[in-house]
């Protein structure tokens, strides 16, 4: 009996040590890029990219299975950031950089079923059974997760209206330059 115990202990210890060393030196490093990319992505796990959540999309991006433009929520800005992180060339022609959108409940259609509330990843929808729901526009990310769940099509995405503090001067086109007053007087007296 002692022989058996002794031999098995030796065997266990040797194999354990070997496994420990192998674990230390032959370890497959978890890809740090995945975590970094996941931090870039919106984090709402809306699934519009076709991957299981933002971590799934990050893995696919690192693996090359998804293009840098896969996230419709992040738009062009995110695509540029991802391409920069991954060091890949970016073809932005296919990305429609849509203006930011927000979900809006049509009050005459809402039946108060609470289905949208359960799907919203940011808890941006407020409501109770058989009461008209409402969207908190500060919390809505426009991910469209709620739209498909509404049985009466009462919830739809609408573009965020441009307001005075958020207005951005349009990029000059190559046509006649207007809008800026600087070109607005003709005399050019001295150069310096």
């Amino acid at each position: 009996m002692f022989t058996a115990i002794f031999s098995l202990t030796i065997l266990g210890a040797t194999l354990g040590l070997a496994l420990g060393i192998a674990g230390r030196f032959l370890a497959v490093e978890a890809n740090a890029n995945v975590a970094e990319l996941e931090a870039l992505l919106p984090g709402t796990n809306c699934g519009q990219c076709g991957f299981p959540g933002c971590s799934g999309a990050a893995t696919a991006l690192v693996g090359g299975a998804a293009p840098a433009t896969c996230c419709p929520v992040g738009g062009k800005a995110l695509a540029v950031a991802i391409a920069e992180k991954l060091g890949v060339r970016l073809d932005l022609s296919g990305v429609a950089d849509e203006a930011p959108k927000l979900a809006l409940v049509a009050e005459d259609l809402c039946i108060g079923c609470c289905r949208c509330i359960k799907t919203c990843p940011t808890d941006a929808i407020l409501g109770a059974p058989k009461q008209i729901h409402n969207v908190l526009k500060e919390a809505c990310t426009g991910c469209a997760a709620c739209v498909a769940h509404c049985p009466t099509e009462a919830i739809l995405l609408h573009p965020v209206p441009v307001t005075l503090p958020h207005w951005v001067m349009p990029k000059p086109s190559s046509a006649v330059s207007v809008g800026n007053c600087v070109t607005s007087f003709a005399e050019r007296t001295a150069w310096v």
């Binding site: 207005w167 951005v168 990029k171 809008g179 800026n180 150069w191």
Partner: peptide, 25 residues
């Protein structure tokens, strides 16, 4: 607007800068 004023090619330089600043914000 000094740059756009002296520009011989009539490039609306300030408008580019205003656009860029707005986009960054």
């Amino acid at each position: 607007g000094c740059c756009a004023y002296v520009c011989q090619s009539h490039i609306p330089l300030v408008q580019y800068f205003a656009h860029a600043k707005g986009t960054l914000a």
